[in-house]
């Protein structure tokens, strides 16, 4: 029973959890959400740009998108965050006078998620049947308008589940920005748990952090499943029987 008690002590020290909760709500949660949402939005914009470059008829644009994606997808997130944060941080400090690593954290997360989101969008756009572009162009739309009005919207719709999955990954990866040494008011859920764990010598604050992450990610996961199912079955609508569908116009009687 000693072992069980010891485990309960390490993970479920209610006092330690209770002490860290206010700070997690007031500081950690908002920061995690800001990091994830802002870099999610910027990453989506970067991703759209990369996807359009990736399917462009211009070979130069395709190559740039390819190289960017290969590098950013191929590196461990920790490494990217460190290199961008510490590498470009001093330059930004020089230019803006700001010492906060927060913008660098957002930049690193955005650049990384942009590479993944770009691939998601590209695969979605390319999965749209070629007949869609052909039919749009046959109506007299230019290539650009056809893509913008018909092909890209369909491509995005198709990859919405994958996109939400990427946002879930982003929420989790935002925990890595603690490497950059954020100011006390900038700390997100993970670092607040980590600090408290270090102070108390107990793992329970991590458990509190885990609960916060799950409260964010599990609803999103189910949201993904919901859109996925919705897109597969669509809104139900009754089809007419084929006999009723066959009759038409004056010619049908002829």
């Amino acid at each position: 029973m000693d072992i069980l008690n010891q485990l309960a002590q390490s993970f479920f020290d209610w006092k330690a959890i209770g002490e860290v909760l206010p700070k997690m709500f007031a500081v950690g949660l908002p920061n995690t959400i800001v990091l994830a949402v802002v870099s999610g939005v910027i990453g989506t914009a970067i991703g759209m740009l990369l996807a359009l470059m990736g399917i462009s008829r211009n070979a130069g644009a395709r190559w740039i998108a390819r190289i960017y994606t290969d590098i950013l997808r191929g590196l461990p997130p920790v490494l990217t965050i460190l290199v961008i944060g510490f590498g470009f941080g001093p330059i930004v400090r020089e230019l803006t006078g700001s010492t906060s690593p927060y913008p660098m954290a957002i930049a690193a997360l955005s650049l990384m998620s942009g590479a993944y989101i770009g691939e998601i969008f590209r695969s979605g756009i390319q999965s749209v049947d070629k007949g869609q572009l052909e039919a749009t162009r046959a109506l007299g739309f230019s290539y650009g308008s056809s893509m913008r009005l018909v092909v890209v919207p369909q491509g995005i719709r198709r990859v919405l589940p994958a996109l939400v999955n990427q946002f879930i990954a982003l929420i989790k990866e935002s925990s890595l920005v603690f490497m950059l040494g954020l100011l006390a008011t900038e700390r997100e859920i993970f670092q607040i748990g980590k600090d408290a764990a270090a102070n108390t010598g107990n793992l329970s604050p991590y458990v509190a952090a885990a609960i916060f992450y799950l409260a964010l990610t599990i609803p999103l996961t189910h949201f993904v499943n919901w859109i996925d199912a919705r897109m597969r079955t669509g809104r139900p609508e009754k089809k007419e029987p084929d006999e009723a569908a066959a009759v038409v116009g004056k010619g049908a009687q002829a």
Binding site: D242, E243, A245, A246, V247, V248, G249, K250, G251, A252, A254
Partner: peptide, 15 residues
Amino acid sequence: LDPELVKGVLALMTD
């Protein structure tokens, strides 16, 4: 098109 639906479309084209 399924065979039973061909007629309606051809009729329209004839019109």
